[in-house]
Design a protein around this nucleic acid. Sequence first.
RNA 1: GGGGAAGUAGCUCAGUUGGUUAGAGCGCUUCGUUUACACCGAAGAGGCCAGGGGUUCGAUUCCUCUCUUCCCCACCA
Length: 970
Amino acid sequence: MSQPTAYDPRSVEHDLYRRWESSGFFNPDTLLGKRAKAFSIAMPPPNVTGDLHIGHALTIALEDLMIRHARMNGQAALWVPGTDHAGIATQIKVERMLEETGTSRHEIGREVFLKHVWQWKERYGDTITKQIRAMGASCDWSRERFTMDEGLTEAVQAAFVKLYDDGLIYRAKRLINWCPNDQTALSDLEVRHEERAGSLWYINYRVKKSSHSITVATTRPETLLGDTAVAVNPKDTRYKALVGKRVIVPIVDREVPIVADARVEMDFGTGAVKVTPAHDLLDAEIAKTHGLHAIRVIGPDGTMTEKAGRDLAGLPVHEARVLIVEALDRDGLLEKTEDYRSNVAVCDRCSTHIEPQESDQWFVNMAPLAKPASAAVRSGKIRIVPKRFEKVYFHWLENIQDWCVSRQLWWGHRIPVWYCGGPKVKRMGFSASVAPRLKHGKVTTWRIRDHHFNVGDTVTFIHSGTGKFTGQGTITDIDRTAVRQLPLTDPTHHQGRWTLAHAIRRIQSHYPDRKVTPDTEAWVYRYRYTAPRTARNGCGEVIVSHTQPTRCPTCSGKTFVQDEDVLDTWFSSGLWTFSTLGWPNNQKGRVKRGDLKRFHPTSVMETGWDILFFWVARMVMLSLYFTGEVPFRTVYLNGLILDDEGKKMSKSKGTGIDPLVMTEKYGTDAMRLALVIGQSAGQDFKMNEQKIAGMRNFVNKLWNIGNYVTGIGNGESGIAERSRSTTHHPPPTTPTDRWILSRLSAVTEEATDAIQRFDFSAAGQRLLDFAWHEFADWYLEIHKAERNDALLREVFDVLLRLLHPFAPFVTEQLWQQLRARRKNEFLMLAAWPQPGRRSTVDEKRFAEFRATVAALRNFRMHSGHKPHEIGHVVPGNHTRAWLTLYERLGHVSLQGTAREGSRIGLGYASFHFPAARVKAYESWKKKERLGLTQYLKRLDAQLKNTKLPDHVRKQVEAKRDDVLRRQKEL
RNA sequence: GGGGAAGUAGCUCAGUUGGUUAGAGCGCUUCGUUUACACCGAAGAGGCCAGGGGUUCGAUUCCUCUCUUCCCCACCA
């Protein structure tokens, strides 16, 4: 009976994982032994939206490596898995799904929508956890958490209430980052800056009661409608005389002052800047200093407001811009236009241009939290690997801005705030407009881009922001709106927008006689939802509490309405290390008592550097605040995985490597090895299929080594049980024994050390190199001559232990075979090897022999000998080669094959070669000698240095002797 | 504007305090199917360590400048 020669991961992985998991040993509570020392990792929770990508695979590989190493090392290893609800990301996905089925979240309402999301979560959350299992993650599933499960929701509420009670959370009306597409506020971190091509317009503002004018440069001419000042730098001599004068804002003819402010750059543009406090963060600050008011001309949906004037109201900004520039040009106020590339703020998620909007939001005051977070790293309580990220971390914390934590979404932790007196719905409605509003008076037809519209036409609604098709409708009225003021009664829509698909359905349900057909094509440029007008019947008192209040302390009112908004996803993530372990108060018995005390702070936080601010820093701040402890002792920041072009792998671009496909194709171990060995801390790296294939080859090599080792004896004999501190080897008897044990000790020491230094790549590389090029290539071949079965099995056993954290499946499988499957015995639980004694004498002796053999083989190739012509030293035929090794190490002189011809000596061996081959050999020898001569020259030059330190001189001299000896031999 | 990383073999990358003839994997060339493995074995070819200058007895390694690439942060309209 012969084993299959190629390793088939699929036939072992699934079954093995099942056995591991059902053994219960992923849970530290059931691990055997004292295990006084705890080692814990909180798994960065993947989003419940969709599949595991290659970055997750890396994280799992690294964390599993650490956990398995710790477990073998006798520690109570706990790895807490979980998933993240991922607010916006998930909501958008579910919305998209609803759109496909022809409905929308607004139509079905908040409650029903959330039911859909939960269903989605169940489905995808399940997929994710299956995939994590497929990666071989030895995490404790009995402690699995979800950011929106009951316990964590409790933690989130408790955290919010405490921060509020301590005065660190406040509500404020502020200019915030607003995404017109997602219709929600965003934190500063969720805004990306992108360089985009645009123009710089130079616009003249007439100075009042003067023939002068002042020219401002702007990239956003449409905002001039909301200008309330022009600002210049106080040091700017060009404008000194103008400060305090008033200018006329073009088009709207508003009189505004010229103010002096040091924040204005003199060198940019004309040195004069228009101030639009409602739509620019810097302008808002200038306005604050100078007491200017704000005029909001752009609405939350990214279109111009009524304040922008009758002619422009309702137009998307980019269209308004065109009309404004035209108007300026017509009036001769446009000085010039330049091409200009500028950094624009865009939504990190959907790349929509961010429109700063003033609105009521909840903020966390970060400065008091940042200081201790900074100190924790400075004092060494937290170590960041690699260290260079500390600087970035400090810089961010020192310049921290308050964190806008409210989001205008439905999916997430509802903000635990109640307002006394509920909103009373009076009237709701929406309108859809199809024309630029530059016309006045009664019109009966519109013309847009050569299309004429008439009553009765069916129009296709296309969202002006995204360009997506949203539905069809019939024009019912030629006025300013196509459809207007349909009565709507659903009170849950307080913000956000209606989709047109929904609008159309409304039309149909209210006016069943109207036909909506999809064939007439036209465009509707905008639609709009008018927010409900509300009237409170309470006092509006704000009550922050995790439960709904029953009685208002101010007015005794009994009606309360909870804040509609939810919290930023990262708010709950920030609590992850301790909320998963039971904070606060064991979460009403849902979590094992004592977990928090035992496993927190966690040992290591392993994640990508790209979420250092989003997540890592916030965890430090929140953990220190709520538990008084750091969340983790070490932060290991892994690099990002890049595609072959050096770009971050992206699923949408199709450049990503799918870890599940790779696992299927090459096995989990191969992929994990490729990831772990490919990366080094904080350093981005390229990944491709070829690398994984290379590791598959290694896994297969290991498998075949295993086949050989298990084949040599049948099971039982050999390996005795060993406690973890004393891995005693059978007494070495031969030089070969001493050599391999010495090498094993070396690799054990180096690999262990590298793991402790978080240099997983070096550890893996070292083990791989040993397994393949020392153990398999040389020792296994020696074994064929020496037949020390016990030692072979022993060394292999240790090797499997060392490799287990890197390639858990194949090593476990082989180990089970090696031990003839004793029940409930797992390599996963075996003791991590301790290094034994080194033997430099035997290592050196081996090195010499290896060099001898290599030289013989080299000569064979260069002289053109066929293998059989040389006899003992035959490439590939290690068995016989190793007979010679054995003889050498045993101090027996080596015998060559006697043939006719010249005799040559190589090191310790002497051989006779056929005369016909000697010529070829001579040319090879000449080349070799040349190399040695050059080397000798270099060494001599070094020796001439009078300042050469003694220890170096000694080394050089030894080398010189060696070269001379080799030269002589040639 | 501030900060960071990188430039080593055709490709992807190691190279730990300055001191062997700078390494590995993949690819390439040649040889070999001998019972663990062709997802293999053996022997090779291939590097002014981006470039200039400096420190040193000695620099891929330390300093400095230049060039090139990438990334992060930031309210120059």
